[in-house]
């Protein structure tokens, strides 16, 4: 008979372990948030907040915009909390709301500015906003600068996969497309990034 030590699954480490811990924490907190547990609401903000902030920063490259988007997103999460079905993965639900927050914000921006540009028009050059509370390292800016060379749909897929470590299935659920479409977008994105990194390298060498 196997001992309990032998039966125990060793905890995963690194990115995979962190993702599993995040999923477990979100699964624990969401039902309590639905039950109006204020401590769970605070803990959920602390757990899911960085995920949302990374997503918005990767897509917009603007720390001021990230603050607004995160707040708007929490407003929607708060209103939508009854639509979460207990026991189901939380991250695709959260990211689907985050995605629509950004799309709606772009639509509002387009209406108010009256400009006929694509959603890429919302993307700014990664800012170096020195405000306290926002860590905006050179490395982050470099990563985001490369992401911003991609078309929006590819950037979105890659952002979810890279910065939030989401699986193809989770990205498909969050974006409402098939898994095959996610893989195709990611494949094209990786090829485009190769080119972008090549260009960055040449630019650096020329300098």
């Amino acid at each position: 008979m196997a001992s309990p030590e032998q039966d125990a699954v060793p905890p995963r480490t690194g990115a995979a372990g962190a993702r599993e811990a995040l999923d477990a924490e979100l699964l624990r907190l969401m039902p309590r948030y639905q039950d109006a547990d204020r401590a769970a609401a605070d803990a959920l903000v602390l757990t899911a907040g960085p995920v949302l902030a990374r997503y918005f920063y990767s897509l917009t490259g603007d720390t001021r915009l990230v603050e607004d988007l995160v707040q708007e997103c929490w407003l929607r999460i708060h209103r939508a909390r009854q639509s979460y079905r207990r026991g189901e993965p939380v991250l695709p639900w959260l990211m689907a709301i985050a995605r629509h927050t950004r799309v709606d914000q772009y639509r509002r921006w387009k209406r108010s500015s009256g400009r006929e540009t694509g959603i890429d028009g919302l993307v700014r050059q990664p800012s170096s906003d020195p405000r306290p509370g926002i860590e905006n390292s050179l490395q982050a800016r470099e990563v985001v600068a490369v992401l911003h060379r991609l078309p929006d749909s590819q950037r979105e897929v890659l952002t979810m996969m890279k910065t939030n470590d989401m699986s193809v299935e989770e990205v498909a659920l969050a974006t409402g497309v098939s898994q095959a479409a996610v893989k195709q977008k990611a494949f094209r994105a990786y090829q485009a990034i190769r080119k972008a990194l090549g260009v960055s390298r040449r630019e650096e060498n020329e300098r």
Binding site: V45, A53, V70, H78, I134, S137, Q139, A140, V143, V144
Partner: peptide, 18 residues
């Protein structure tokens, strides 16, 4: 390479969630 932590004001978000 990661993009690190992009920290935002969690107090305001907590207020919204509560």
């Amino acid at each position: 390479r990661g993009i690190g932590d992009v920290r935002v004001d969690s107090a305001r978000a907590s207020e919204i969630a509560r």
